[in-house]
Design a protein around this nucleic acid. Sequence first.
DNA 1: GTAGGGTTAG
Length: 653
Amino acid sequence: MRSREIVLKLVGVCTTAKLLTQLHSLIIRTGLNQDIQLAAKLTELYFELLPVQTARKVFDEIPHPSAYTYNRILQRFFGIKRYGEVLSLFSSMLSFEKPDHFTLLFALKSCSALKALNFGKTIHGFGIKHGNIHSNMFLGSTLIQFYSKCGDMDDALRVFEEYTKPDLVLWTTLVTGYEQSFKPDEALAVFTGMMMTRGVSPDPVTLATVVSACTQLLNLKAGESVHGLVIRMNNKSPLPVSNALLNLYAKTGSIEYGVNLFRMMEEKDVISWSCIISCCAHNGATDRAISLVDEMIHKGVEPNLVCVISALQACEASCNLDKGRKIHELAFQKGLELDILVSTALIDMYMSCCSPKEAIMVFDRMLNKDDISWFSLLCGCVQNGMLYKSMQIFCDMTSSDIQPDATVMVKILGACSELGIIQLTSCLHGYVIRGGFTSNSFVGASLIECYAKCGSLEEAVKVFEGLTDDKDIVVWSSMFAGYGIHGQAKESIKLFHRMVRDSSVRPNKVTFLSILAACSHAGLVEEGIELFNMMLNEYQLMPESKHYAIIVDLLGRTGELDKAMCFINQMHSRAGAHVWGALLGACGIHQNTEIGEVAARKLLQLDPDHAGYYILLSNVYAVDGKWDGAAELRGSIKEKQLKTITGQSVVRL
DNA sequence: GTAGGGTTAG
């Protein structure tokens, strides 16, 4: 008896694996291993100090473990995410001991993690048969969560409805179930029912979930009213609720709300920083995003994976290569660089900062590559004009067993149309057919555009006519543009009338952009203006700067510069660079220095560092014989060290 | 010994 107590005490103070094994052999030698309590303690210690397999073996040697011992071990396995072991223990337990609520709970949680719906249903059934599960709220919420995680909200609701007096946790679990099953409307409906009909007050956990549901719906108003509720209830919202709100403001583009809340928050953690940085980065406040990154680093906030990704996105959005490199270094130091999401964010950042070499280096270092990382690489190469490289990436990608999806096909067809190589288009066309993308209208439209840009209107028409009867607006628009590229505006207009007559498809702004551009290329002034008016009056589509620019271009080509100027003055919105650029170009052709100067001044107000505008204006001066003015402008390009890009166009047959 | 919550690529 005494030796048993001594050994128990020794087990209690044992801290190393070596001591434990010695102690174990002592226990076996003295026959004390038949003592269940001692064996259980010993097993638990094995879990702490030695690999789980060894611990499991020790456990299996216990002659008749009690339900309590089973539960302890079960909980251990659950803690280290060995869900399969939990379920195997549960099964073996059935022949010796009756599982209790505690056992069922961990077995069900394991089924949730493994999404093992059928196994879980069996456990549920066992619970109904052998124990009064409806008296146990803990099991109730675990069951609701189990069915939710397995995507079976009907059964989750059924379980919930079996509880006549659900408590707040049960309600919240149901709300969360709907929210995480991407059914935010139902989540809000349950929440409202809980508050209004049942008079149950939410707590911070409920509210965080409800805010997430509002975020999914991009419903700022609903989210704000929850924010109001939080303030009324508590005055100061707990961290997860504030973070959920920050995320809501980030996703709905409400920068000011986000920044205000962030500044008011007394307590902030790495998630708060991630949210506010990505809020600014994704909503155009790129400078603010960068200064927040600086502030975060300065304050010594330990960034995690998501935080690094947000910071990289901020660098990407502001094209801040230096800062991007610093974050890269930080990620490297923290050992986060090779994470697939971080690497992909790095590729995106380097590509957007015009440093494809560094992006490719990151890609090559990646241990695991998925379709997204391949896509980022491919996209970035196209973005940086590395069209042959993007083709090579496409080939590498397909030979690495990555199946390109429709987005990849659209991108690579875009690259191909820039290259202008018709044979390549034919190859990709084959890929489109084999990959089963023929019914995808975006792919179809890209293919039409690609053939048209490679010089084969005939093939473009073939693809267009070969698409199924219910062609959508994207497909129609690309064909209008295709005719436009080949100067066949009349065909484009004819086809437009066919669409209006024979289909139920309604033109959109892009449609009109395509046809108007066709008119502009062919110099069809009257038709262009007619279509513009049709867009405005018949289809009530508000023209954008680009539409106005085409009309200005049309009027400008025929020399009607005064009319073009009047047209600009009548615009509903402020004229953008496209509009003034079109006017300035026309002034060059028709030697109108006066209007040309007005246009150029507007353009340089919009972007003082755009070399193209200086060149256009200098052309106007040159045509008019004002060589001094022209020379001065060319001089200021050099002085400002502005980059000029020489235009190219290629078609290979 | 037991239940519900916040950030992550096109």
